[in-house]
Nucleic acid binder design. Sequence first.
DNA 1: AAGCACGCCAACCGCTTGAGT
DNA 2: TACTCAAGCGGTTGGCGTGCT
Length: 257
Amino acid sequence: MARTPCCDKNGLKKGTWTPEEDRKLTAYVIRYGCWNWRQLPKYAGLSRCGKSCRLRWMNYLRPNIKRGNYSKEEDDTIIRLHESLGNRWAAIAAQLPGRTDNEIKNHWHTNLKKRLNQNSNSSSDQSKEKSEDPSHHETSQEGESKLNNDHLDITSLQILESSSSSPLPSSSDQFSSIPLDTTGVIRSTESIVEHHKVDTFFEPYAAPSSNFWTEPFLADNSYNFNISNDFLVPFTDPEYVPVHSPFFDGDMLCPFI
DNA sequence: AAGCACGCCAACCGCTTGAGT
DNA sequence: TACTCAAGCGGTTGGCGTGCT
């Protein structure tokens, strides 16, 4: 799944994200939050449009993302919700912690839809057989709708902490305990540190060259520190008072859902 | 081993929604 | 109330991987 990188007319990069771009975006959002997606790439040192950054963050980089390894429970939940909500992928994703609308949408089109079709075919075959049985008056459609109606009451749905029931570990396990408030907002960098082993969390972002931290962000020298030492200080030193984004005078605001 | 076909999924595009003025 | 702009959402595209011939 990668697209060949290219540039559009405005010189903004399109296509596949490189690990370096991922590092920049992740580091910036973690540090300053997503205060304005349109402006963000400029300050994060990315030649991307804000929309692309947002999408990359929301669908791939943000914490608590689970990738692949759909459990049976998750599949069932998606099927039930799709039956009642239709193609409202964001609404469906909201019921599945760690899953993105994009991923669910893809999963639906590539797996579940086919499976459902197969099932409905086989059930219609069954109902054909049953229709020959005078004791069965239910059409396949009725049977299907009955099946679905069993799950129509969304409010009664148990929101699955399906990650825990998933048989295979997901790639987001390292993020699974980032504390979010009820709106999915990360409230402080300390809270991240508190709940993470910082070294493993930032390992992927430990760029070999120090200019990763000095080049992309700001002219403000206060942000120029070296990844190998200084960067981790804010996350490891309990005395550290986080520096807020110069563009947002307050807590970091970043929807992690 | 090479070529082909198909499936998967990351990413883009355009429309809609909602907040701010 | 009308307008503007940013964010969110869903549909679609297209490149890569993999299985099949």
